[in-house]
Design a protein around this nucleic acid. Structure first.
Lengths: 207, 207
DNA sequence: AAAAGAATCCCGGAAAACAGGGGTTTTATC
DNA sequence: GATAAAACCCCTGTTTTCCGGGATTCTTTT
């Protein structure tokens, strides 16, 4: 019996997943949690074989949660569940120890397949994810850039439509500093204007 | 027996919804469709009492689909289902004839409540949506701007990080024209720089 | 057929952002 | 305690965007 835990903040999704997994005799859903904190608590009292983990959780990003779980309990295998198929997200999840990546628009049996596949030690990507990765054509596979607190702060203010000067005023720093951060952000995102930075950040849900 | 149709492109969600609705004796799920086209086809052969409609569909935006359905079959009541609780989205849906708006992180019985409420002629908003609208504080309630084909095209190119000149080259139009469009976009979105336009557009999923 | 809206084009000055160099001081991490 | 990052600061020249007008054609709706 494979023990599966569901980490997902949408009760309807949870309901659907449970239902699908129930239909398979070899799988047992041993718990469902809506946020990162309660998962980590629950894990202290016992680990499942597989975790189905939503990438977007209310309290912590799935990427980070994935990393933390794997650090503490390396035997737990994680399948990322997500609406997105952006390469950077996929990549970050896999690099943080996820063994599978399934999109939410997947069919029920695709998830069951995924569970069995990763229990066999394979890495499982659903068809649309594979497609997305294929289209990515190698070197485009940049992960989500790691940005600092300050950079994020500035990014958010830029997103609000403030100018460099307004941001400088608000944070009590010089415009030159703001421009440096702006520059660094553009570099980290690999683009050459702030508009693209904001677009990407919003895609990666960093805003 | 209330006949309900589910319009949702995530099979897992569909599964969850069906499961929840099955638990109520007065509700019958008479069909489930994954895109706008198949819904419209199905409706020609008979209408349900209520439609649970996802706002993000692969082929058509939920907002438009909602409008079309209501135009042809005004008796069908629509409950919008969505991950977002952005005011503009909520507003657009309600203005296009939706009678209810429930977020996907809602509990199962909230959806059942919603169905009964709108069958009684009420308008139903789930708690978090009400919260979102309350926070909106009036005048912020701008709907998603209606943008033209051309504007959308230019918006996308701007999102790619192209400059006015590059866009002009690519579309074989003058830079002045591009600037006009840029200007109109800013006006329609009520902001004063392109970065904000792109951010909003990406939030509203217009990109 | 008239009106409205979309799409195209035009100008010039002011205000930002970008590019690309320089540097110091905190704050983590090893 | 050393080293590396982060966060901070500064400069100048160039490019791009923003803002404020105004104008013509084409298409769609009434």
């Amino acid at each position: 019996m494979i023990k599966v835990v569901v980490v997902e903040d949408h009760p309807i999704m949870v309901e659907g997943l449970k239902n699908i997994l129930r239909s398979d005799a070899g799988i047992e859903v041993s718990g469902a949690y809506g946020d990162g904190k309660s998962v980590l608590q629950a894990l202290e009292k016992g680990q499942p074989d597989v975790m189905l983990m939503d990438v977007n959780l209310p309290d912590i990003s799935g990427v980070n949660l994935c990393g933390e779980v794997k650090k503490k309990y390396e035997d737990v295998r994680i399948i990322a569940l997500s609406t997105h198929d952006e390469q950077p997200v996929i990549h970050s999840m896999l690099q943080n120890g996820a063994s599978g990546y399934v999109q939410k628009n997947a069919l029920g049996n695709e998830i069951i397949h995924a569970i069995y596949a990763i229990m066999d030690g394979e890495e499982y990507l659903c068809s649309s994810t594979k497609e997305a990765l294929k289209n990515a054509d190698m070197e485009l596979l940049k992960a989500i850039p790691r940005i600092t607190r300050r950079e994020k702060e500035i990014l958010q203010l830029i997103g609000k439509g403030l100018t460099t000067m307004q941001i400088a005023d608000q944070l009590f720093i010089s415009t030159h500093t703001v421009e440096s951060h702006r520059k660094n952000l553009m570099e980290k995102f690999g683009v050459n204007n702030t508009t693209s930075v904001v677009k990407l950040a919003s895609e990666y849900k960093l805003l």
